[in-house]
Design a protein around this nucleic acid. Structure first.
Lengths: 237, 237
DNA sequence: CAGTGTGAACGGATTCACAGCC
DNA sequence: GGCTGTGAATCCGTTCACACTG
């Protein structure tokens, strides 16, 4: 939709959007209808208007100050990531435990030391924290963020964090997407013979004839790239 | 399951696993049953055996050579990411367009110039490519990867890539997870009044009373962190 | 007798199909 | 005429409940 908006396309039909998104047009209309009657019968949806309404509903019209803790490669990459600003996210501070990093600017923002963490969060009214530290430091950082009043955490460290009720955690595992690709890749290759006959002999293939069951791969729709932006888990209570 | 395995726990019940994963035990049993009858009635599942079977089914017991193109902060972060090796991924090469990067080791692997791209892929039999370039270069890199024989692409650049049929693309948008958090955060805050009364006045709030419809947030289950590892889209045909 | 494997029941999400409107 | 908005029909994933087994 943003792309359409940039090309100054005035209106879209549910059919067009649905095709682009790889879903059924009825579903798209029904979903939009939950936000209100924003379309015009016989015409379609006003692009600008719809972009605005959806942005508002998603909370993208607000200003979300965010702190990033752990300014290694990943932290730096996140700090430099252009996609945040346009979605209403503002990097309020970069925090790292390494005193040598302190004061050094990354993406134009000076890195601050972990000691300042609580003060930074309070002063800026930050409610979302990003953890990009090594696994070992993650839980500790998390605890401090929560204690300082943060209620949403995006965790890139390969650990499951434990948090009190009311705090929302989402974990990003960079290897999961690769695994999904590999899974499909395996399928593409395995089209030939039905019996793979593994090599690597760690666990001895115990009894039980692996009765290659249904095992059907999920629905094959057109060109939808990337993960579904699911919104599962933790609701505010 | 890996954690259980490391603690040498011999068996698990579907109930235990289900609780840990935040799902219903029946669902877990049914899902496992699609892989075969790997449990023992009255006992549970053999941890080691199950780990192996699932790994194999997911394609994690194979060796997947991967190339990373674009060795900026993100590319470097990916190259250094520990989670890949344990999942069967091997970084076969790092590729960057900047001649100054060539030869420089990142994560112990020397960066090679884009000119070598085709040769590297062919020589190493690479079928999965990771794009971590700026948006502007992504499509071009993608085309070369595909031409060189790559059939799965993980795209971190903020562009939708177009690829021929048979090539699998997954796009990772680092800001989507933040958006999901912000969405929930907005909900938490909006518990007070029902009328937000926006500030930012870009699009003039046109007619139509935004009839705050159902708009219910998805199911609230226990502590599941992160996105569902969905496996949608593109099936091998 | 604890715990798997699975047919049957359930319920929510998707799709159909069409009335209503521009 | 074209396209939205939406009740009704349908589909499909989830859960129940229990027969079966080690």
């Amino acid at each position: 939709m943003t792309a359409l908006s940039e090309r100054s396309v005035p209106t879209v039909s549910s059919e067009e959007l649905a095709t682009a998104a790889g879903v059924n047009s009825a579903k798209l209309r029904k979903d939009f209808s939950y936000l209100g009657s924003y379309g015009t019968r016989g015409v379609g949806y006003d692009v600008e208007y719809l972009v605005y309404q959806i942005s508002r509903e998603l909370g993208l019209t607000q200003d979300w100050p965010v702190v990033i803790v752990g300014i290694g490669n990943l932290g730096a990459a996140l700090a430099n990531y252009g996609g945040f600003a346009s979605r209403g996210f503002r990097v309020a501070a970069l925090i790292d435990a390494d005193p040598a990093m302190a004061g050094k600017p990354v993406a134009g923002i000076p890195v601050q030391h972990t000691d300042e963490l609580e003060k930074i969060i309070t002063d800026n009214g930050v409610s979302i924290g990003v953890i990009a530290t090594p696994a070992g430091a993650a839980q500790q950082v998390c605890d401090r963020l929560v204690a300082a009043g943060i209620t949403s955490i995006l965790n890139f460290a390969p650990t499951v964090l434990s948090v009190p009720d009311g705090v929302d955690v989402r974990k990003v595992d960079l290897s999961i997407e690769l695994q999904i690709l590999a899974f499909h890749e395996q399928r593409k290759a395995g089209e030939e013979i039905a019996a793979p006959e593994e090599a690597a002999g760690a666990v001895p293939p115990p009894p039980v004839a692996p009765h290659r069951a249904p095992s059907a791969a999920p629905g094959a729709d057109s060109g939808r790239q990337g993960p579904d932006g699911d919104v599962p888990a933790v609701m505010p209570a």
